[in-house]
């Protein structure tokens, strides 16, 4: 495959694209920026640039990073390429906890990410427990099925909450699709720390991710406890996904598509897959958000819509490409 030569150039290319799209997204939007006024305190351009566009760029990059790494971790934890946070209910669990928290503690805004993490962990635990009752953890089919059930449950709870307390969420539909229209800089502080911690944890887990894909029996024979590894991977995934959900809503597809792309490009080695995901995830989400803001400018659509529009054909392409192996 020659992946040894390909990998550095791939990383360079992705980084370059990420920088380009970042610059593009900073200087594109429904309002025209007066470039000379950007650094002039108090001017309209200054406010738009530093209070709207920069936080939004940061939010999209953070969400892309967190959700794609979380997807990779979930797929590793479940040994199933079909798993991702929004399929097996982790995102929905976090989303439900976010809404519940907003209903009861609307003032404790900064604690929102922790509530989201608790919700994601709860969803995660439910998925693992239900699948453990049906069959062994290694049986990834049962994990997906119980995940789908948990996902449906939490989505129903989210709908219930948003019907009972319509004022809590300014827009339920934009929350459930996911987007960055209502992101403030202050709502990013805690999630950015949590996502950094999750990212470090994630990269430090790459050696065990390489081992767990050999299956439970070989993993045990190498002295590791496969069940423990899967729990740790899933918890790290919950931390990353929930932090992103707390400010970006239920962004779908990035957690499914990017890990597929990363494995496809890296050949499956965990560290390389993580690096590619960490670059391609933000790139995809940022591009989706850029489209969301510009296509019907001056109005805007939730970024989640464009994520699905670009993500679905791409996923189908990857699946068809892979079909040749099966």
């Amino acid at each position: 495959m020659g992946s040894k030569y390909r990998f550095p150039s791939l990383v360079m290319l992705l980084s370059l694209l990420l920088v380009l799209v970042s610059i593009l997204s900073l200087f594109t939007g429904s309002a025209d920026l007066d470039y000379s006024g950007i650094f002039e305190s108090g001017s309209g351009s200054n406010i738009i640039f530093f209070s709207l566009r920069l936080p939004r760029l940061f939010a999209a990059v953070l969400a892309g990073f967190a959700l794609s790494l979380s997807g990779l971790l979930i797929q590793s934890a479940s040994s199933n390429d079909l798993a991702s946070g929004n399929i097996i209910g982790i995102n929905a669990g976090a989303g439900f906890a976010v809404l519940l928290f907003l209903v009861f503690f609307p003032d404790l805004f900064h604690l929102l990410p922790f509530a989201a993490f608790a919700g994601a962990l709860m969803a995660c635990a439910l998925v693992f427990i239900i699948s453990a009752f049906t069959k062994s953890i290694g049986s990834s089919g049962s994990l997906i099925l119980s995940g789908v059930a948990v996902n449906a449950l939490f989505n129903a709870l989210i709908s219930t909450l948003s019907s009972l307390f319509p004022d809590v969420m300014s827009s339920y539909s934009s929350f459930s699709v996911g987007g960055f229209a209502s992101v403030y800089a202050s709502s990013l502080i805690v999630p950015s720390f949590l996502i950094c911690a999750g990212g470090i944890l994630c990269f430090s887990l790459s050696p065990v991710m390489n081992i767990i894909r050999l299956g439970d029996e070989i993993t045990s024979s190498m002295g590791y406890r496969p069940f423990r590894i899967r729990i740790i991977l899933a918890s790290a995934a919950a931390l990353l996904a929930s932090s992103a959900v707390s400010f970006a809503g239920l962004l779908g597809f990035v957690g499914l598509v990017i890990p597929h792309l990363a494995r496809f490009l890296s050949g499956g080695e965990a560290l390389r897959s993580l690096v590619i995901s960490a670059l391609a995830g933000p790139l995809l989400v940022l591009s989706a958000d850029l489209l969301a803001r510009t296509v019907i400018s001056p109005g805007e659509l939730p970024a989640g819509i464009f994520l699905s529009i670009t993500g679905v054909p791409f996923l189908i392409f990857l699946l068809v490409r892979r079909k040749r192996y099966d």
Partner: peptide
Amino acid sequence: SRKEKEKLHALLPQSIPVSSVSTASL
């Protein structure tokens, strides 16, 4: 300990995992 176990046993399981990864990466 884990390190001790690593020096004790190795196995070739009955069901070999199938995943879409390159042999080189294994």
